[in-house]
Design a protein around this nucleic acid. Structure first.
Length: 281
DNA sequence: ACAATTACCTGTATGC
DNA sequence: TGCATACAGGTAATTG
């Protein structure tokens, strides 16, 4: 599932590829995949990419004329780059055949970005700088966990007056962006805190551990170029390695890698949640 | 105003 | 083997 480390991996792959390139066209076989395309595609035709950046789990491609293409991968989205004619050596036809589950293709001068999305939850928006944050929902997003503004004090401040389970708060993109089911569970394990414990019951020491645990999980995910449990691949179609170092996510019923106790799987905030009863309090 | 639930989708795993 | 059902989870929309 693309969360912050997965999106960061894709963006860092795409940045050197797309920067300086000219947009050609966008085509979609799924009617809901592209928002604002009919009206706004013409606005970026022939325009140059000046910046590729991540905001939470959103990918923003900025153009020279103050238009932005925003992409969200949601559950099963992949963005894979193919050079022009890259399939030519593979087929007699020489056509750039669609990849599996390719829903939308974004053509640039040197190649195309293939938006593959089994479940069709993903979206592409094309809007101008003034409107894109409102249309996409980016304006509601909270703090970036990798920014220098995100320190112990801001973390405590953000979570101090919250209620409900720790996991629900971690998943809330209005507070801190980028954390999804994988890194919420892993962060809680590192912190030694049960994901179903009440946030209002945590003392400053617990919050500090949670802060460190979440950061550690996210940074490790980035270092390992994402978690490839089901769908995730980088912009070249290659899997990440972070699934090899997970302590709890996807390991319900298996022994805890720290103490050997059987990991428990429950539902918290409507999400499958795995933790260790001995290591997490 | 806020929290909980449902909708959006389809592939995979499980149960009978 | 085949069919039905559950499950996976990011976010918006809907309901309570």
């Amino acid at each position: 599932m693309p969360e912050l480390p997965e999106v960061e991996t894709i963006v860092s792959d795409l940045r050197p590829i797309l920067k300086g390139q000219y947009f050609v066209a966008i085509k979609s076989s799924h009617k809901n995949h592209v928002v604002g395309a009919t009206k706004n595609m013409g606005c970026i035709k022939g325009k140059k990419v000046v910046l590729v950046a991540r905001r939470g789990k959103f990918i923003n491609i900025f153009f020279e004329n103050d238009y932005v293409m925003t992409i969200h991968l949601k559950m099963s989205g992949r963005l894979i780059w193919r050079d022009v004619g890259s399939d030519r050596s593979m087929t007699d036809e020489g056509s750039d055949a669609p990849l599996k589950y390719e829903r939308t293709r974004i053509d640039f001068e040197k190649g195309s970005l293939r938006f593959c999305d089994v479940r069709k939850f993903g979206r592409v928006w094309i809007y101008d700088l003034k409107n894109y944050k409102k249309v996409t929902g980016i304006e509601k997003l909270g703090i970036e966990p990798l920014s220098k503004d995100f320190d112990m004090a801001s973390f405590v401040n953000i979570f101090a007056d919250r209620r409900g389970t720790v996991k629900k708060c971690l998943l809330d993109q209005r507070l801190v962006v980028g954390i999804g089911n994988i890194y919420a569970d892993e962060g809680c394990f590192y912190a030694g805190i049960r994901p179903d414990s009440k946030i209002e019951k945590l003392n400053n020491h617990d919050l500090k551990n949670l802060f460190n645990g979440v950061l550690k999980a996210l940074k490790q995910g980035i270092r390992n170029r994402g978690t490839s449990i089901s769908d995730f691949a980088d912009a070249h179609g290659k899997a990440g390695r972070n699934q090899e170092v997970l302590y709890v996510y996807g390991r319900g019923g298996k022994p805890c890698l720290k103490c050997g106790d059987e990991l428990v799987k429950i539902k918290v905030a409507q999400r499958g949640t795995v933790f260790c009863r001995k290591c997490q309090k």
